[in-house]
Simulated scan of single mutants.
Amino acid sequence: MSADRGPFPLAILAKAPLPGRVKTRLIPSMDAEAAAGLHERLLRHTLEQALQATPAPCITLWTALNHAHPLFHELVSRHGIARKAQPEGDLGQRMHHALAAISGPGLIVGSDCPVLTPTLLRSCWQALATADVVCLPAEDGGYALIGARRAEPRLFDGIDWGTDRVMAQTRQRIETLGWRLACPAMVWDVDRPEDVERWQREERLAEEPRGPAC
């Protein structure tokens, strides 16, 4: 399969929406149930964008916290995507495992980015035609997507996950490997109360009626 056209494999890392276990940085600005509901909404949004970019059989939901959660069963049954349980280990080990399960180039996304679009996903895939690694850096210093032509554990070694140093350290790791990096866009995640407000503002703007075209 060429990296410049056609369907592409996509792994989505997804936690079960368990109150008190997801989106904990939004508590106490909202209660645990509301934070879990928002997490579920973001996951559904991510999958919706993915299904517009690549066929369902190319998408794998890598689950955590509760592999048998009813939400995962619903999404798999409704859309025909694959489901696999994330292994033990830190985030880097789990991402490497998901990438290694793909035969050839592939993309991995989380479920926290409300500005992810089918166009952006396709752009990231197309970038692997000339780059060894593709990332969507996030404003908080991390990244919302990473893709590579091949799985390489060193890509995820020595990264301070959950900090604002993730993207900078990843760039250093890619440079050490002698690989080429592409970053088609800067994005942002929903992690803090102000991110929720930003998302709500952007949704309101998107819903506002537009005047007639000139």
Rank of each mutant, 00 (worst) to 15 (best):
E203V: 08
R78W: 08
R83I: 05
P137D: 13
Q86W: 04
T163L: 03
G37I: 11
H45S: 01
A35T: 01
W125Q: 12
P55L: 02
R180P: 13
G92N: 03
L99A: 07
I59D: 06
V133G: 11
I174H: 02
G80Q: 13
L145R: 12
P70E: 13
R41P: 00
G211D: 13
L116A: 06
R41L: 03
A101N: 14
W161E: 04
D90P: 06
V115Y: 05
A213V: 13
K15C: 10
A32G: 12
W199A: 07
P70A: 12
L205R: 15
E48N: 10
A151G: 12
C214Y: 15
A11N: 00
S2I: 01
G211N: 10
F156Q: 12
R122A: 07
E152R: 10
E33G: 07
D189L: 14
A35V: 01
L65C: 00
P17L: 00
G6E: 07
K23H: 09
E88F: 03
V196A: 04
H69P: 07
L177K: 04
A101E: 15
R122P: 00
A3K: 08
L61K: 10
P28Y: 15
A144P: 02
P114N: 04
R171M: 12
P137R: 13
T163R: 01
L181F: 07
F72W: 03
G92D: 02
G142N: 14
H67A: 12
N66L: 09
A148L: 09
V134W: 13
A82N: 15
G178R: 09
E202N: 06
P17I: 00
K15V: 00
P19W: 02
L51D: 09
A82E: 15
L177N: 08
R122E: 05
L181R: 10
K15R: 08
T46Y: 01
A168F: 08
V134F: 14
A35K: 01
W62G: 11
H96A: 02
I59K: 06
A185M: 05
R210C: 03
P87C: 07
I81R: 09
L51M: 08
G158R: 14
L116Q: 04
D132G: 15
L43V: 05
R210T: 05
E48F: 11
L91C: 00
Q86R: 08
A32R: 15
